[in-house]
Simulated scan of single mutants.
Amino acid sequence: MPALTSLTRVLAGTAVIAAVVTGTTGPAVADNKIGGGAQSPSTEAHGESDGSGTVSATAGAVVFERSKNGSGTSVGPVAAATNWTPPACYYAPKYTPEQLRKVKEPVWEAESTGYQWDGEQRDTYVNGHPYKDFNKEKAGEGYWWDSYVTPGRKGDPGALDCKEDTFWVDTGDDPPADIPQAITPEVLAQLAYAEIRVPTTEVELRPEGATKVNLPTWAWLDATDFSPVSVTASVPMLGVEATTTAEPVSVRIDPGTEDAQPYPASGVCEVVNGRIGEPYEQGRADETPPCGVKYLRSSGDGSYQLKATVTWKIHWTGTGVAGEQRLPDGNFGGEQGVVVQEIQAVNR
């Protein structure tokens, strides 16, 4: 048989595995449970609901608990303030020794991946270089780890970064340090980061309705909507978890035109005494608001698209980790139309 490329071998092997898993004998994971029958590693995603919406979901070996996350139709994911992104793939427990045998042997027997590659695989997992007979003698003492694609990242180029062959980790041991995407509390925190949902940013503005040229417009956020949210990611079979929390720290006001003066001059309103901005009170129209904007030109027959972007400070805690650990800040914003009119002079 002619030599095959790595990608061709993977695709051919995947086709054979799919045939085995979907055959009439049932999925390969059905007759051997990890942890003495307590749990089987899953390659599918599913969720559990409390009746008011999904509060937890399992993706591969990772469980996401979202009861303290943002919810509703107006929420969305944060975008990291840097060029960092959560991992698009990761490694976690996937097979027991018997499960791995049922996955690998049909691929080799099909002879679709090349004699040389099949021989190297047999040498690795059966012939003791380094594993003997799929590590059956260690059944119940560890798991075969393999790659998963992070939910929502299928098709992402980063989803192809997890190229390591299936490897063994004894129960209680850390995964190899030279495999950065292997599940640890920090990797779980990063996966939970991608699941964080925060409310869209529509600031309260006063005066209501159309504002006037050269009249300060006050802006603030409703504190009940902008409170900390969190997601916990865990791998129950390993006893590790991490909780990632996002809390609002500031809002940046972009008036939608250069003919405007933001307050403060930077356009960034920080959290003060647990709130961003200050609600307008009658009689303060001529005062300078702690957060807001003054438009210098009418919007004519249209409106300016004011954009408010909230920055969320994001940190995590996890199994065996002392204190809060930082992750990149996240941003999420929204736009709203603002009609600006000229002040009409009264001729007497």
Rank of each mutant, 00 (worst) to 15 (best):
T309M: 04
P151I: 03
R348F: 12
E202Y: 04
L188H: 05
Q305D: 11
F134E: 12
C89G: 11
D301W: 10
L306S: 09
S234G: 05
I276C: 04
V149G: 13
D259G: 06
W168I: 02
K132V: 12
P216Q: 06
A233T: 14
K154A: 14
T224H: 05
A18F: 03
G337E: 02
N69I: 03
Y193D: 08
T243L: 02
T96L: 13
E105V: 09
A57P: 12
S147M: 10
I183W: 03
V203S: 00
E105K: 06
C89D: 10
R252I: 14
D170P: 06
G302C: 06
T201N: 05
Q305V: 04
V338A: 00
W117E: 09
P279E: 02
A139Y: 08
A15M: 11
V338P: 00
R326M: 11
S40T: 15
A18R: 06
I314G: 05
P279K: 00
V346F: 09
S227M: 09
P151E: 03
D174S: 12
T54H: 07
V103D: 04
T311R: 10
A80Y: 00
S56R: 14
P180E: 09
E195M: 09
G239R: 00
E204R: 02
P248N: 04
F134W: 15
F64T: 13
D174F: 02
S52R: 11
P87H: 13
E44L: 14
T224W: 05
A28L: 14
L4W: 03
Y143C: 11
T85A: 14
E137H: 12
G47M: 13
A12Y: 10
T171K: 14
R326H: 08
K33F: 15
V203P: 01
V339G: 01
G76S: 03
T171H: 10
D301A: 13
E137Q: 08
E208A: 00
W218Q: 01
E186Y: 06
L327A: 01
V149S: 12
R197F: 05
G320V: 07
E141F: 03
T73W: 08
Y304R: 04
P289H: 00
E186M: 08
S71W: 06
G158C: 15
Y295G: 05
A19H: 09
V310E: 01
A88W: 13
N83I: 07
